[in-house]
Simulated scan of single mutants.
Amino acid sequence: MQTTATTLLYRPVNQTELDLIAQSGYKRFPPRLQDQPIFYPVMNEGYAIQITREWNVPAYGVGYVTRFAVDSAYLQKFTVQNVGDQRHDELWIPAEELEEFNDHIIGRIEVTHTFKNQ
């Protein structure tokens, strides 16, 4: 039995995005909006939590951290982008490639944390 090597990635999402993920059976991320040219999953949960707490919750009142596995060989085509300190690593997936990216998700997208305005 051959198994595919996977990489765990994280993505902060708002309620609307989570609802669309749920509609896909927790298998796919929704298409990007017109003004969103990239999809950026992050490389560690701590960074996803930081984004959720600092940006999603203030903007939307609630935020979720999702975790999902992607075929590691497929991810090699993307360069890790560092956008701050050493834990601020993310991948930049062009919006037009998101469907192909979704095809390489192994298993389900799961919610690991929920944060709300208090």
Rank of each mutant, 00 (worst) to 15 (best):
M1K: 10
T4H: 00
T6L: 08
T7F: 04
L8D: 03
L9K: 02
R11I: 02
P12N: 03
P12T: 07
P12E: 01
P12I: 04
V13F: 01
N14L: 05
N14K: 07
N14W: 07
N14T: 06
T16K: 13
L18Y: 10
L18K: 08
L18M: 12
L18G: 02
L18R: 07
D19P: 03
D19K: 08
D19G: 05
L20T: 01
L20D: 06
L20N: 08
I21H: 00
I21Q: 01
I21P: 00
S24G: 10
S24M: 11
S24P: 09
S24V: 10
K27L: 15
K27P: 14
R28V: 07
F29V: 08
F29I: 07
R32P: 01
R32D: 03
R32C: 09
R32T: 10
R32N: 12
L33E: 15
Q34V: 11
Q36F: 09
Q36Y: 10
P37G: 15
P37H: 14
I38M: 12
I38D: 13
I38F: 14
Y40N: 15
Y40P: 13
M43P: 00
N44L: 03
E45K: 10
G46M: 06
G46S: 08
G46F: 06
Y47D: 03
Q50D: 14
I51N: 02
T52N: 04
T52K: 00
T52F: 00
R53G: 10
R53I: 11
E54T: 10
N56F: 13
N56G: 07
N56W: 10
V57F: 09
V57N: 05
P58Q: 07
P58F: 05
P58M: 05
Y60D: 11
Y60L: 02
G61F: 04
G61T: 04
V62D: 02
V62M: 02
G63V: 12
G63T: 12
Y64Q: 06
Y64F: 15
V65N: 05
T66H: 09
T66S: 09
F68Q: 00
F68W: 04
V70N: 00
V70C: 00
D71H: 03
S72E: 13
L75I: 07
L75E: 09
L75Y: 05
Q76E: 14
Q76C: 11
V80Y: 01
Q81W: 11
V83E: 13
G84T: 01
D85I: 04
Q86D: 15
R87M: 14
R87Q: 14
R87I: 14
R87P: 05
H88P: 01
H88E: 00
H88Q: 06
D89R: 08
D89L: 11
D89P: 00
E90F: 01
E90T: 04
E90H: 05
L91N: 04
L91F: 11
L91R: 04
W92L: 08
P94V: 06
E96N: 08
L98V: 15
L98W: 06
E99I: 07
E99M: 05
E99G: 09
E100T: 13
E100Q: 11
E100F: 07
F101R: 00
F101E: 01
N102I: 12
N102W: 10
D103P: 04
H104G: 05
G107D: 08
G107L: 08
I109L: 10
E110M: 13
E110R: 13
E110Q: 15
E110A: 15
E110W: 09
V111H: 03
T112S: 11
T112P: 08
H113L: 06
T114V: 14
F115R: 02
K116M: 13
N117D: 12
Q118L: 12
